[in-house]
Simulated scan of single mutants.
Amino acid sequence: MYHPFFRGKQYELLTIRENAPLLARSNFIPIIEPVKEAVGGLDRALSAVRDAGGRAIVIVNPHHGEHGPERLGISTMLRERFSGAGIMPAILLKEDTTVDQAVRCFNRHAHEDVVFIHGGFTQAAALTARLSLDMALIRHVFVDGKAPRLYRRHFTGPFRVLVRDGFEKRKNSAYPAIEAFSDLHVTYPDEGMTGFGDFLTVGDEFSESGGPAYAVVIHLTFINSLEDDTMLIHHFLSHRRDTPTDPAGKFLEALGLLMEALRQPGCPIYETGAVMEFRDLHMRNHFPGLGYAKKLSMQHHIETLAQYLRA
């Protein structure tokens, strides 16, 4: 049903690994685009998913990062380490992907549960003609805004997922207190889909590393039951925003605002495991690092959707 889309950076893979039992219980299937040439972290994350009895989708021809679309390292690893383990290879179809590249990639995995991820590719008719198979047998993931409805008509079947980026990337100091995130968890059947996904509280925009933190923000999503269960995102922003110094102090400022919000009667933020850990950090006056705070934000998002869909 839900397909969180991760780039395979350290804390994203750690989020998958630590939440593998929850992902499996909730029938959530993460999508992973590996971006680091070293695959140890990816191997550990996928092992956790497998051991929890879950499933995952791994892009074998990444667009971002260090691998490159024509290198075979990920395909080899999946075949040698995770064959038959519920780990599905995915072919990413971007604007610059040729039909020949897509066919070569598909042929390497033709006897597996292949997933096509449609992210800007336009030659739908040519691809289906070259593959000469029933597209209803293939799993399809469409990135919203990069796979128009007319294009999607070429790819039918019982597994069609729409992934939408609900996180608008800004300078940290420019985030509003609250803004819309997504309604796709409610409306995906209206789009003719069997599942939905997003890029969590990180967004689709890829960067190798962030710049200096003039401001520190904690991003937490929540369900607004008063507005048709739409999902909103709360940005808790540090008071100081003028210099890149003291990220620890700024994190504690943002964390204090989060604690104030949680004390408000009727606070709509679910009391997830991640929120409990934020409470513990506040009690100990401890800064775990910005990467770890991002991991907790992603974990909270997954837990929030799991609670909502379970209810």
Results as ranks from 00 to 15, higher is better:
residue 235 H to W: 04
residue 266 G to E: 11
residue 270 Y to A: 11
residue 244 P to M: 09
residue 282 H to E: 12
residue 228 D to S: 08
residue 265 P to S: 13
residue 286 H to L: 04
residue 264 Q to K: 11
residue 257 L to K: 15
residue 242 D to H: 13
residue 272 T to V: 04
residue 261 A to D: 08
residue 254 A to Y: 03
residue 240 R to C: 10
residue 259 M to C: 13
residue 286 H to G: 00
residue 249 G to L: 05
residue 244 P to Q: 03
residue 283 M to P: 00
residue 240 R to T: 15
residue 252 L to A: 11
residue 227 E to R: 00
residue 236 F to M: 07
residue 230 T to G: 12
residue 227 E to N: 08
residue 252 L to I: 12
residue 263 R to G: 14
residue 270 Y to E: 15
residue 244 P to W: 10
residue 252 L to F: 10
residue 251 F to M: 08
residue 257 L to V: 08
residue 250 K to G: 05
residue 238 S to W: 01
residue 249 G to C: 08
residue 235 H to C: 03
residue 242 D to E: 14
residue 233 I to Y: 05
residue 246 D to C: 06
residue 285 N to G: 09
residue 227 E to K: 00
residue 236 F to S: 04
residue 251 F to N: 08
residue 274 A to N: 06
residue 241 R to Q: 12
residue 273 G to M: 06
residue 267 C to D: 01
residue 246 D to S: 02
residue 253 E to M: 11
residue 226 L to K: 13
residue 277 E to I: 12
residue 241 R to G: 10
residue 255 L to G: 05
residue 263 R to S: 15
residue 251 F to H: 11
residue 258 L to N: 03
residue 233 I to G: 08
residue 278 F to Q: 02
residue 281 L to S: 02
residue 248 A to N: 09
residue 255 L to H: 05
residue 264 Q to N: 11
residue 270 Y to T: 02
residue 232 L to F: 12
residue 262 L to A: 07
residue 284 R to V: 09
residue 250 K to A: 09
residue 229 D to E: 13
residue 245 T to A: 15
residue 262 L to M: 14
residue 253 E to A: 10
residue 267 C to M: 07
residue 283 M to S: 12
residue 254 A to Q: 09
residue 287 F to G: 03
residue 248 A to M: 06
residue 272 T to P: 07
residue 280 D to T: 08
residue 288 P to A: 06
residue 231 M to G: 08
residue 224 N to K: 00
residue 225 S to T: 15
residue 237 L to N: 09
residue 272 T to A: 06
residue 261 A to L: 11
residue 255 L to E: 05
residue 239 H to L: 15
residue 234 H to Y: 14
residue 238 S to R: 07
residue 241 R to E: 01
residue 259 M to L: 14
residue 279 R to L: 01
residue 268 P to V: 09
residue 275 V to Q: 05
residue 285 N to L: 06
residue 248 A to H: 05
residue 266 G to Y: 05
residue 224 N to F: 09
residue 278 F to S: 04
residue 259 M to E: 14
residue 272 T to F: 06
residue 246 D to G: 01
residue 240 R to M: 12
residue 241 R to A: 13
residue 277 E to H: 03
